[in-house]
């Protein structure tokens, strides 16, 4: 199987976010970056399918040129090669523009399956996967927890998460696109050997202009202001020495809230 896994570089979970002076993005000065969480699960699913059926895993990413680093990590985990769409202008920030460059980049790739995460931990639109499927004219399924592929028969079954603890099996012909939910199965670590090999693996860098998006293209969605809402905190915050705050809490639960 030839499997394309879309991964995105995002600010790490531990980040303390500060809004940049343009109010449209975060201040990236003291931020570290990692692979978007559910994309890592998508990669794991892709690597498992390759181990089982043979073939190739291609990682595709759109982002700052610095995203090469997270791509190397994906290659170290076992992906075979990478395609990086370098967005130096930070212009590709909307699902339609992302879908456009990604679908153009995949035009000549004869893939069987495209895997993505369900949503990114920065913009969190949860759209790009499905937009990409439409632009590639292939069926899709979202929020997938398990894949049972039958590449010979050109089809797969995927278990989709639904509301209230229910799941549903869907059957799709290949090629197809699945967006993978975080937690689908444990993600592997890169081995030392993998890290060494990753250095030699190919990462092809493409520019938006080569993929049909000119510098003048306007994203359909634009963040006009990013902000923190501090007044929203409702909790009475107890902090300090452990013994003292535990005493305080218990007293409040007994006397104020009357729930003990």
């Amino acid at each position: 199987m030839r499997i394309v896994v879309c991964i995105k570089e995002v600010s790490s979970r531990e980040s303390r976010y500060e809004v940049a002076s343009d109010e449209a993005w975060i201040n990236e000065a003291n931020i570290s970056f990692e692979i978007n969480e559910c994309d890592e699960y998508a990669l794991e699913e892709g690597l498992k399918l390759k181990e089982h059926f043979g073939g190739e895993v291609v990682v595709l990413s759109v982002g700052d040129p610095r995203a090469e680093k997270v791509m190397r990590k994906a290659l170290a985990m076992g992906a075979d090669r990478g395609i990086l769409i370098a967005d130096e202008r930070r212009q590709l920030t909307s699902p339609h523009l992302l879908g456009k460059v990604m679908s153009s980049a995949l035009k000549d790739e004869e893939f069987d399956l495209v895997l993505t995460g369900t949503q990114s931990d920065d913009l969190s639109y949860a759209q790009t996967a499905v937009v990409l499927a439409e632009l590639l004219s292939i069926p899709h399924a979202t929020i997938i927890m398990k894949i049972e592929a039958e590449p010979e028969a050109k089809r797969l079954r995927a278990l989709r998460e639904m509301e209230s603890g229910r799941f549903q099996w869907l059957e799709l012909p290949l090629p197809a696109l699945l967006s993978i939910q975080a937690g689908s199965s444990p993600v592997r670590y890169a081995s030392l050997k993998g890290i060494m090999q990753a250095r030699k693996k190919e990462i092809r860098t493409l520019k938006p202009e080569e993929l049909g998006v000119e510098a003048t293209a306007v994203p359909e969605l634009e963040v006009v202001r990013l902000y923190q809402k501090k007044e929203e905190r409702k909790a009475e915050l107890l902090e300090g020495e452990t013994g003292a705050i535990v005493e305080q809490l218990v007293e409040k639960l007994q006397k104020e809230a009357k729930v003990l």
Binding site: S94, P95, H96, G99, S124, Y125, A126, Q127, T128, A129, V130, V131, A133, E134, L135, H140, A141, T142, I143, E161, M162, E163, E220, L221
Partner: peptide, 22 residues
């Protein structure tokens, strides 16, 4: 909803019309 998040981005791309989610 789980259903609309599965459908709406596709509709958005097909029509070329923006979708603001969540």
């Amino acid at each position: 909803s789980y259903q609309n998040i599965d459908m709406a981005p596709r509709l958005s791309a097909r029509l070329g019309k923006a979708l603001v989610t969540d």
